[in-house]
């Protein structure tokens, strides 16, 4: 049954080289019994400190009321349009928060978009359905939807069956969701979160019913399928910026600004590295990224 990218297993396979490296690092350090730094992770420690520092600083700036800009993200502008169309047609909105666990940051991003969508659905009285594959994601999605209906002042419209749990199997889940799409013809499908091979099955089934589809994932291998079959796709980092974009919360926008600054530093580092390497033949900038304290 190798094709099931049971996320745990695929993670092990993907992470294996990295884990082996980490374990060999640990093996070398068997003698170390005091407080110390894991020497292989020094570069990451510096990056982490820099990242946190910049982001925290930007949050502080935002709290002091500094105006922050965020560029247009088409997929997120279309959210209201999609819900509006469902409302007009009197059909439901379907939101699939991926098949990842709630521990994945992608899923958490999806849940914050879900909350936004649920709030609008509550305001317009548009029916919403959020089918789930992972049980903990299901628990969290239910909390998010319930809270959204409460915040919109329509707790009466919320019921348990809006957020059903289907099954833990990737393709059994897909079969049920595509079945629902074809039978109930939701006017808007949101496919946002962590998706694997089922991405195209869901998106193509939704496309065949004429629904407006908004997708979003950071799974590189699935993006081509979403981009070609959905009306809008949040690509990678756009998904993580979604909650800040939708809420326009200044603190969150501060985080986005901070993350942009770190991105600029990484870019600059790469460019300087290229120049140094080209001019002198020294791989120092590269080595520092791979570096450990020892070498």
């Amino acid at each position: 049954m190798s094709f099931i990218p049971r996320s745990a297993l695929s993670k092990v396979l993907v992470a294996a080289p990295f884990l082996l490296q980490a374990s060999s690092a640990l093996a070398q350090e068997e003698e170390v019994i005091g407080w110390g730094i894991v020497s292989d992770n020094v570069a990451a420690l510096i990056l982490f400190t820099l990242f946190s520092g910049v982001v925290l600083y930007q949050i502080g700036q935002a709290r002091r009321g500094k105006e922050l800009f965020i560029r247009r993200i088409a997929g997120l502008n279309a959210v209201e349009e999609a819900i509006g169309r469902s409302t007009e047609l009197g059909r439901k909105v379907m939101f699939v928060p991926g098949i990842g666990t709630v521990g994945e940051v992608e899923t958490l991003s999806a849940l914050s978009v879900l909350k936004h969508v649920a709030k609008h659905c509550a305001e317009y009285g548009t029916p919403l359905e959020v089918p789930n594959k992972d049980p903990l994601t299901y628990a969290a999605a239910r909390e998010a939807v319930k809270e959204a209906y409460l915040e919109a002042g329509r707790p009466d419209l919320f019921n348990e069956e809006m957020v059903p749990y289907l099954t833990y199997d990737q393709f059994a889940f897909t079969a049920q969701v595509t079945g629902k799409m074809v039978r109930e013809k939701p006017a808007a499908n949101f496919l946002i979160g962590s998706f694997f091979a089922e991405s195209l099955l869901l998106a193509e089934a939704g496309q065949s019913t004429g629904a407006i589809q908004i997708a979003g994932t950071a799974q590189v291998a699935q993006l081509p399928f979403f981009v070609t079959t959905c009306d809008y796709t949040l690509i990678g980092e756009e998904l993580y910026a979604a909650s800040a974009y939708l809420s326009k919360d200044p603190v969150m926008l501060g985080c986005i600004k901070g993350q942009d600054i770190v991105k600029a530093i990484v870019l600059l580092w790469i460019v300087i590295g290229i120049l140094v390497l080209s001019a002198t033949g020294s791989t120092i900038m590269q080595d520092l990224l791979n570096s450990s304290l020892g070498n």
């Binding site: 992470a15 990295f18 992770n41 570069a43 990451a44 990056l47 982490f48 990242f51 666990t101 709630v102 521990g103 994945e104 940051v105 958490l108 903990l136 969290a140 990484v266 580092w269 790469i270 590295g273 290229i274 120049l275 390497l277 080209s278 033949g281 791989t283 900038m285 590269q286 990224l289 791979n290």
Partner: peptide
């Protein structure tokens, strides 16, 4: 659950993705 796995994922991404992928992009002109 969320706190633990989100933080772990952050470590894996910084160490396993940002650093090596950036390093691989540095090439000589």
């Amino acid at each position: 659950y969320v706190g633990y796995y989100a933080a772990l994922e952050m470590m894996l991404k910084l160490q396993g993705e940002v650093l090596p992928q950036s390093a691989d992009t540095i090439i000589s002109l």
